[in-house]
Design a protein around this nucleic acid. Structure first.
Length: 435
DNA sequence: TATCTTTGACCCTAG
DNA sequence: GCTAGGGTCAAAGAT
């Protein structure tokens, strides 16, 4: 991922904002009360894209922008007075929006789409991205890194927006605002509904995949990225064929192949030093149904179950790390034609069928925060590994790195003492599974 | 004995 | 053409 492109992305577009409101309950209650009871059963991208179906075909990026730009949502934000003001959030004229917003979470939208979009209250970015209500790794069959989760945040936001449209009269509930409330909800949340949908029937998966394919027509890359996946329950058998330390990550990376005959699917699993899974990257598409019985080897099951447990632990810890004030986060999703990573020609041939449903976009997420980068409240710890003066930017750029794939340019405070941080990651819109 | 994991070496690609 | 880095192979060891 080129640093230049990150600079371009940061410099080219003004970043409208999404705001993390103070701890509240309404949207949270949306996620906890569940949409499943409403009888929804399309795939996740169907759900998201259907909200904007009357506006023509959209890429995932556009969907995200659409969520951000929703006037309904803005109206709702005004009504609820979730946040107080910030100069960085002067992307709309809604004074009410500015009134009560605390530290802000800002997600960028295309230039023409400026109204901010409110995220569920009561969640800091880290908690938000890792809460079960947002397709937690345990619930999602393919999980996501926190940057990828950012994209899901906006997708979920679009989802909640639609929900709010359908329930305009929904009253504000005094629900528990604690993270535990999100964890222990009994009825399926919208995200759960989505996840269950993905998990359920191959036929439904087919539908989901088609939707995701439609959503990301412009994407040219294949392979899907997951984090904190639930390997033990992904239904497939894997054989480890390699492990390596990669420079981009402090975590050792393990390589797995699907053991099914002639199945081209591979996955990479990265673990942190303490053995926790930090990222799982799938590549290719299964050409078979998942094994129905417990045919997996005992060792594999044990190892993978351990991964699942680790991911659970991670969610808990990140939630515990939450603070009241969240950073300003800007999502700038760009679908460029840059190669995702070096790929061997043999891989390209086997893993990217012409009709591949797997899509991936290289996403740049700009985070604005009042805090120093080391304190960036996204639930992860960062280390500085470089600093340089960037042409056209009076502030030195500090480079920080988290687990892997997150190349970050860090700018000085541009406005109102907010720092801009560009996260570069692989945003996934995909539904792995049998065909 | 079979299967799986480990790990060093090799291959390929990008810069 | 060289080098660095990621991905894969395959022999050896472990279970």
């Amino acid at each position: 991922m080129g640093e230049t492109s990150v600079e371009d992305a940061a410099a080219a577009k003004p970043k409208p904002t999404i705001v993390v409101p103070p701890r509240g309950s309404m949207v949270e209650s949306l996620f906890t009360s569940g949409l499943g009871a409403m009888g929804f059963s399309p795939g996740p991208m169907t759900l998201v894209s259907s909200f904007f179906s009357d506006q023509g075909p959209f890429s995932f990026s556009q969907l995200l922008a659409g969520a951000i730009a929703s006037p309904k949502l803005r109206d709702y934000a005004n009504e609820e007075s979730w946040g107080d003001s910030s100069e960085n959030c002067k992307t709309s004229d809604d004074a009410g929006f500015k009134r009560n917003r605390p530290m802000t979470l800002v997600v960028a939208a295309p230039e023409s789409l400026s109204p901010p979009f409110m995220l569920p209250p009561g969640l800091t970015p880290s908690g938000l991205l890792n809460s079960p209500g947002f397709l937690s790794p345990l619930q999602s069959p393919f999980g996501m890194s926190h940057q990828q989760a950012l994209a899901h945040v906006t997708a979920q936001a679009a989802f909640s927006q639609s929900y709010m449209q359908m329930h305009a009269e929904l009253q504000r509930s005094p629900a528990d605002t604690s993270t535990e409330a999100l964890v222990s909800h009994s009825s399926p949340s919208p995200s759960e509904t989505l996840t269950e949908q993905i998990n359920s029937e191959p036929r439904q998966l087919e539908s989901s995949k088609i939707e995701s394919s439609e959503v990301s027509q412009s994407d040219k890359k294949a392979a899907y990225v997951t984090t904190g996946d639930k390997p033990a329950s992904d239904g497939y058998n894997w054989r480890k064929y390699g492990q390596k330390h990669v420079k981009a990550s402090e975590c050792p990376r393990s390589y797995y192949k699907c053991t099914y005959a002639n199945c081209p699917v591979k996955k990479k699993v990265e673990r942190s030093h303490d053995g926790r899974v930090s990222e799982i990257v799938y590549k290719g598409e299964h050409n078979h149904l998942p094994p129905q019985s417990n045919k997996r080897k005992k060792d594999t099951s044990v190892a993978l179950d351990r991964e699942v447990n680790n991911v659970d632990e991670n969610v808990q810890e990140l939630q515990n790390d939450e603070t009241e004030e969240g950073p300003v986060i800007v999502i700038d999703d760009e679908n460029d034609d840059e190669p995702l990573a070096k790929r061997r020609s043999s891989d390209e041939g086997q893993s990217v069928p012409a009709s591949s449903h797997q899509t991936i976009t290289e996403s740049k997420i700009v985070v604005q925060t009042r805090s120093e980068v080391d304190l960036l409240d996204d639930g992860y710890k960062w280390r500085k590994y470089g600093q340089k003066v960037v042409k056209g930017n009076p502030h030195p750029r500090r480079k920080i790195q988290a687990f892997s794939k997150h190349d970050v340019g860090f700018f000085g405070p541009p406005v109102d003492q907010h720092y801009s941080v560009v996260l570069v990651t692989d945003l996934v819109v995909s539904n792995p599974g049998p065909t």
